[in-house]
Nucleic acid binder design. Structure first.
Length: 403
DNA sequence: GCAGATTGCTTTGGGACTCC
DNA sequence: GGAGTCCCAAAGCAATCTGC
């Protein structure tokens, strides 16, 4: 959940960092005179930047999430336990105490697999608290959309697009929603001053903030079905998809803006899948998963997972189905429920692939029933198809494999 | 024996294609 | 253009299995 940080360290760390063999500090030098022309020494370690200023100020900045991943990426989940391990890594490798890390900047965010094209979701996010989203590009982060407020930024990323070419296990439709606090006032108000203040219980505040700010996105729902309406009514709703329309409203009275926001909400409730609310639930689930107490030392949890570790895989989805009954060949209800509770990313990937559009708004138990149904349909339809193509005496590799 | 979980098979609906 | 055919995905339904 915690990603980018910028912290200030006390002056005592100058000699500690300069003496650390993992850090190679460099300075800008005039190549003709040999004179040092900058007032800062800089070193890099796995995406983290270490700066020592001649004034005595020392800063570390970068993504803790990427540091945890060897400086490579931040597309996977970064739980509170992973964060705490990374803080311990700062201590063990650089002798940096979390309580000495005075926060200057903090980014919190969450990666969720959404059941839609991420670009569709991002492109229909129009405003955040009356401020429009701008398209941005960053060497390390790729394309993203950002909304600038005086104390914080809101950012939306398509992580699949950004990382898929480099990492094969990036899930499809992976969206990142992020708040970057560039002023500490809001965080100070809830007692966050240093890295050491980022305790488990405070992460519930982060959940609240992320959900609140996602809810504050003015979103035109691209699943809105209004073809059947009279043209006049349809055009009234379609104009809500235009940034220009909302821009003109922002210039006008607040009442008018609120009226149209209300009308947009009504049309979303009436004619769409309510994508924003769906994504909100996914963000909530994901955060709950990231901040829950670790079970790594829980004996019963380890024992129960031993069963799952005896890898027996579904012949269609290729996921582990050891939690189902012994004779199972296909991922079914209990397996899907297991993944819904323990690996929502995987569950959503399976849901995206096997749940038809018709059931997308159905209750969870119905969705699970239909996902399981479609998985066995796939097995059965494949079997029927193959039986047509192969004559009985012919060697059939598909039959041999049991598909 | 019963309820729920799991599976397999048949039927249905719709899209793509061909032919007249 | 529309009738016929093929193919595929999804829905419907019944049978079997499992745990209590």
């Amino acid at each position: 959940m915690v990603d980018f940080i910028k912290v200030m360290l006390p002056v005592k760390y100058q000699s500690i960092l300069e003496g650390n063999s993992l850090l190679n500090f460099t300075e800008n030098v005039n190549t003709t005179t040999g004179e040092i022309i900058s007032n800062v020494k800089t070193a890099y370690y796995k995406n983290m930047k270490f700066e020592i200023y001649s004034s005595g100020n020392i800063f570390i900045s970068g993504s803790l999430h990427k540091l945890y991943n060897q400086g490579e990426h931040n597309y996977n989940d970064f739980s509170i336990d992973d964060f705490l391990k990374t803080v311990l890594l700062l201590k063990s490798q650089f002798s940096i105490d979390a309580c000495d890390c005075r926060l200057r900047c903090l980014e919190i965010g969450v990666n969720v697999v959404v059941p839609y094209e991420v670009d569709e979701v991002i492109n229909h996010s129009i405003l955040h608290r009356k401020v429009s989203f701008e398209s941005k590009y960053h060497n390390a982060e790729g394309n993203y959309k950002q909304c600038v407020h005086s104390q914080y930024y809101i950012k939306l990323y398509n992580k699949t697009k950004h990382f898929k070419s480099r990492f094969s296990d990036v899930p499809d439709n992976l969206m990142r929603f992020e708040i970057k606090y560039r002023k500490m006032e809001k965080l100070n108000r809830i007692g966050i001053y240093s890295l050491n203040d980022l305790k488990r219980e405070l992460f519930l505040n982060f959940k609240e903030s992320l959900l609140l700010e996602w809810d504050n996105v003015l979103f035109y729902d691209f699943t809105t079905q209004i073809d059947h309406l009279k043209e006049r009514e349809r055009l009234k709703i379609e104009r809500y998809d235009s940034l220009n329309f909302w821009d003109s409203l922002i210039q006008g009275t607040n009442e008018n803006y609120k009226y149209h926001k209300g009308q947009l909400k009504k049309s979303i409730d009436k004619y769409s899948n309510n994508v924003q609310s769906e994504v909100s639930s996914l963000i909530g689930y994901k955060i709950d998963e990231l901040i829950k107490e670790t079970t790594l030392n829980d004996h019963l949890y380890i024992e129960s997972n031993k069963v799952v570790s005896l890898t027996k895989k579904c012949i269609i989805t290729n996921v582990n189905i050891s939690m189902q009954r012994d004779a199972s060949l296909l991922l079914s209800h209990s397996g899907l429920r297991y993944y819904f509770e323990k690996d929502i990313n995987l569950y959503n990937r399976i849901k995206n692939e096997y749940l038809s559009y018709k059931w997308i708004n159905s209750p969870m138990n119905v969705q699970i029933r239909e996902i399981a149904h479609n998985i066995r349909n796939k097995a059965s339809n494949t079997r029927v198809r193959n039986s047509k193509y192969y004559i009985p005496q012919q060697y059939n590799i598909v039959r041999e494999l049991g598909v």
